[in-house]
Nucleic acid binder design. Structure first.
Lengths: 246, 246
DNA sequence: CGAAGCCGTTGCGTTGGATCAATGCGCGGC
DNA sequence: GCCGCGCATTGATCCAACGCAACGGCTTCG
């Protein structure tokens, strides 16, 4: 529950699309992004409005309270979405992975901050531009709506987790859900990478860093998982699923 | 955290629209429902697909796990949306009031149960029928999408509340949010009706019934609120807002 | 009018997770 | 190789919320 040091780098690397780099047609995350429903001509139209933007670890894509002028597709890397209370308590609302769209829950201003947990590449659109395309393209709107509905069910799952699950259940459920998300974007393995730190997990699960660490140690001691540098190997997935049971 | 007794009445009153009762054009919640964006001819089209359905206190509109064959507009009354864990732990995902649309977070099956907290009137659509109308009407889709996005921000607020707020803050925030919601549907008063029981509040806030009761008593003793039968009068809204601070 | 339920409140002991405090460990810089 | 830093782990203690139990008020029903 640390207060953000505020030393968030903002000198992100920005570049307009040009002939020299691969366009939307070759985009690695196209099949799993909102763009998957677009035809090639529509993609061209969208590409003209897009800018690529890369971040390094620790840099901020946008900050809570700032005017919400842009929406984003995550192409590569992982971002942490956090909301901060005035007294420094922090809730991590989620982690954005490749293929995710940032800008669904949009108001006039961003309600969360988005920070890179490692090297990140995104595709950025002016919010008004993007809204105009959405307005004119029912398939894109439908695709966004489907994503919003899916996000809503995820949020409901998380509400159940935060409200009614024990610390051990929370950690087990988190590891399994992360495994599933990585599986869906191609990286399929029993060893789950943990791009975020313990504090981030704690703030996501409504726990403290110490409790997360203790629960991971307990699961490790019970041979349900194996703690490895930078991640976790899921040894007894059945037991984890029983713990996370819903 | 009681296990549902399962004695949920399902003999709801159902009637097709006929000349004898007021149609969508005269619907009390039209201005605040998803239907507000529809023209009169479009309303007629929708009305032909709709059935009115009334419930009495304790009756179930739909149950978690059942095939999600219908979507609903709430016309009158209040419903409790709950998700149950296998061991009986319960999370109330929300309370639906007049003007609310049930069916945004829809999967193949309902992920929550919806139960009437008093007399309830709803407007029901076959899910496929409604999807077809949505597909063909971009304005309706946009309206639903806006609602989904709004619900998503509400869910995020609730995640912060569940994860990082104290019992007293949770109760204060709940009372204020309920006041706001009632205000938005016309019932504007410092005395907030509480259609749900203490157990429902507890399961919504991730607390026990005793803790909710204690916090209400504490706020009452501090003259921040006044407990009245069936509701609460907000005496010191500033202090409540400071407690709920975000 | 009394009995039986149901719901909400309150008191009290318990406890899961928070908090405080050390210690460990890997990594980059020099 | 050694130092310093940030992060993770572990132990000891504390406390906010839980769990249990008793009580009280309201409603329903015979």
């Amino acid at each position: 529950m640390l207060v953000d040091t505020g030393a968030c780098e903002r000198n992100v690397h920005l570049c307009h699309h040009g002939r020299s780099e691969p366009g939307c047609g070759d985009c690695a995350v196209r099949p799993i992004s909102v763009c998957s429903v677009l035809t090639l001509p529509e993609l061209d139209q969208l590409e003209a409005l897009s800018q690529h933007l890369t971040l390094d670890k620790g840099q901020t894509l946008f900050g809570q309270g700032e005017p919400a002028d842009f929406v984003f597709n995550v192409i590569e890397g992982c971002l942490r979405l956090t909301r901060l209370l005035p007294d420094g308590r922090r809730q991590v609302m989620g982690f954005a992975l490749p293929g995710d769209f940032l800008g669904l829950a949009l108001q006039e201003r961003y309600t969360v901050s988005a920070e890179a947990l490692g090297h990140v590449r995104t595709c950025r659109f002016d919010r008004e531009d993007f809204a105009a395309v959405t307005e004119a393209n029912a398939r894109l709107l439908k695709s966004l709506h489907d994503r919003a509905r899916f996000e809503l069910t995820l949020a409901h799952d998380q509400m159940l987790l935060l409200g009614r699950r024990t610390a051990e259940e929370k950690v087990a459920a988190f590891l399994l859900s992360l495994k599933d998300r990585f599986a869906r974007i191609g990286h399929n393995s029993v060893t789950v990478e943990l791009p975020m730190g313990r504090q981030d997990m704690a703030d996501y699960l409504g726990l403290t860093i110490e409790t997360v660490s203790r629960m991971l140690s307990r699961l490790d001691r019970a041979h349900s998982i194996l703690l490895v540098p930078g991640g976790v190997r899921l040894l007894d997935q059945d037991r984890l699923e029983r713990l996370a049971a819903s």
